[in-house]
Design a protein around this nucleic acid. Sequence first.
DNA 1: CAGTGGTCTAGACCACGTG
DNA 2: ACGTGGTCTAGACCACTGT
Lengths: 233, 233
Amino acid sequence: MTVAPKVSYQDVKTVVLKRIRDSTWAPGSIMPGEIDLAKEFGCARATVNRAMRELAEEGFIDRKRKAGTRIKSSPTRQAKFVIPLIRDEIEKSSATYRYALINRELRDAPDWLRARMGLSQDISALQLQCMHYAGSKSFQYEDRWINLAAVPQAADQEFKIIGPNEWLIKEVPFSDAEITFSTINADAKISKLLEVSVGTALVTLERITWLNGVPITYTKLYFHAGYQMTSRL
Amino acid sequence: MTVAPKVSYQDVKTVVLKRIRDSTWAPGSIMPGEIDLAKEFGCARATVNRAMRELAEEGFIDRKRKAGTRIKSSPTRQAKFVIPLIRDEIEKSSATYRYALINRELRDAPDWLRARMGLSQDISALQLQCMHYAGSKSFQYEDRWINLAAVPQAADQEFKIIGPNEWLIKEVPFSDAEITFSTINADAKISKLLEVSVGTALVTLERITWLNGVPITYTKLYFHAGYQMTSRL
DNA sequence: CAGTGGTCTAGACCACGTG
DNA sequence: ACGTGGTCTAGACCACTGT
């Protein structure tokens, strides 16, 4: 007599994934319920449940109470990109991180910003324009706006030494964020700051963060030429 | 007597996250073990375990057997980008998807490709250059290379009707992938295909996929001007 | 209303990795 | 060696939602 080793949720995932790929269970169709699968695999329902939960997170299946579990007709491809603190990113490459404040201004949020952040009323904001350097090289230009209605204590900060991102991380929690990754041609101002020719294609990243529905801050980051983000799955 | 409602893993997550944010548990330090937390919260260890596992996935803590759980000094920011099938993406915007093969060529993998895919020996590859249209507008240019040593049956495909991506998804599973997001200035060829001026900043996405260590395919996608990717957290 | 996934429990054993 | 997280179990109750 050999004792069957326990069935792990990984095993279940593997087998189910195989069946999805070879169309044992066709795209769009319903697959067996957790209880049936548990019986088939000879394991507890909790084990099946974990396997299925992860497959759902990874975008292969859709699960609904009562309706059951369906194979997605086109599995959702997704890539997780790690967004390190800029200081860490630069120091990891054994360069020296340096921060510089270019401009600091208190002003009413312009229309485009109010639209972007979902602000209906007039709001005073703190605008900060900053540079981040890796050694002697320009690494990133940051255009930062902080909603003073939500973060009034930012008005007392000079941001001459500490960048707004590092300050906000320590000072203000957030509950939601939206990140948009795009690209632009460098204009005159940006090209000078980032030391590239006018027109150079640059990666830009915009981030808006909220705390329980209240917009906290908007930032647009312009990366040096050649910047790229990589993700492994 | 009121009956205490059960403590959910969400509750545990919320409380633990709060303690991380307000530095009840300092960055870099070790926090209590699962058994202690379960006692404190009055729930089962499995409940605490799930909460902690998710917090680890989300980049707030590091867990090691025996060593315990540590608060990360700088939490890992990460963004999940959904990468839809191009057909779905276009049809979702209620435009008509159209695919066109521009060029199909059998050739030895060039040096840069061998380096990129980690191929040591000479390999014959199938190169496909394709366009994807949304209605009458150019949407994406695709430069695709398929490793014929790994996917010999691709040599029999014409790819006149079905694009290589859709074909590969159905035909070849993969185990690992690497995605790189970057940007370039459109050169003469690309600008013509995508109907933009030379020099326009374009988003590019490279993907390499492997099946159990064997490189399957490399592709570089050039998106139309103004393309952006958004992620909500 | 009834069926399915979502979650919790109490207990157990395992595996990794630090000391 | 031993402590901590990793996982599995068997059973239970709950909550959503399609019919």
